[in-house]
């Protein structure tokens, strides 16, 4: 859906002479990224409003985007599967944020987040065959992922002790979701490597 839309928009710009043929590929890629980011941000806002936790949803989305972009992880094979999985994971995450407002399970959340931090620390960054990383990039993105992980973890610890729930739960959920995606991505890669060997 988004890919078709970005291709159509690019071709429209090309036919009007706003861009050159050389820029076509760049525009399709760039527009895909732009529309996707806007779409999922809007989705997070809508579900945030529906679940009555608008600010927490935005904090979750921003924190998740930061760690996700550098740590990487699981990617769906098709765009449709991505749209379904992304929407479901946003709903599930905002659902947990909503539940944390009703029930007090902060200590459990903190413990699961601790496990997630360890997983992210060792598994990041996990690239994809569509965008493989060079050795230099791998080292660079690992460092950035660790810095972001440290920043989010510090926010979680401070907000836990000072009871800033508006920051605590969204940051925890973003790290938990990222660790799940990293583990899923790692399993997928090992499985693919085994299939190639056989």
């Amino acid at each position: 859906m988004i890919n078709n839309l970005s291709t159509r928009l690019t071709d429209k710009l090309l036919s009007k002479g706003s861009i050159t043929e050389d820029e076509r590929e760049l525009y399709i890629y760039g527009l895909f990224m732009l529309i996707s980011q806007l779409m999922y941000l809007v989705l997070a806002c809508i579900f945030g409003l529906l679940f009555e936790c608008f600010f927490e949803s935005i904090i979750f989305y921003v924190a998740f985007q930061f760690i996700r972009r550098y740590a990487g992880g699981y990617h769906a094979t098709t765009e449709t599967r991505c749209e379904i999985l992304s929407t479901l994971s946003i709903i599930a995450s905002i659902g947990i944020i909503k539940l944390s407002k009703i029930y007090d399970f902060k200590t459990i959340l903190l413990f699961i987040t601790l496990v997630s931090v360890v997983l992210i620390f060792f598994l990041c960054p996990l690239d994809t065959p569509e965008k493989p990383l060079s050795e230099k990039e791998f080292k660079y993105f690992r460092k950035i992922s660790w810095i972001i992980l440290l920043v989010i973890s510090s926010i979680i610890i401070v907000s836990y002790f000072f009871k800033f729930n508006i920051l605590f739960t969204p940051c925890c959920v973003s790290l938990i979701l990222e660790s799940i995606l990293l583990v899923a991505g790692k399993i997928k890669r090992v499985h693919q490597e085994k299939s190639v060997k056989n």
């Binding site: 760049l26 890629y29 990487g72 749209e83 992304s86």
Partner: peptide
Amino acid sequence: STTSGFMFQPKTPASL
């Protein structure tokens, strides 16, 4: 960045 922020990574053009 390592990947896109969502669950689909389109093939990155080499020119990028």
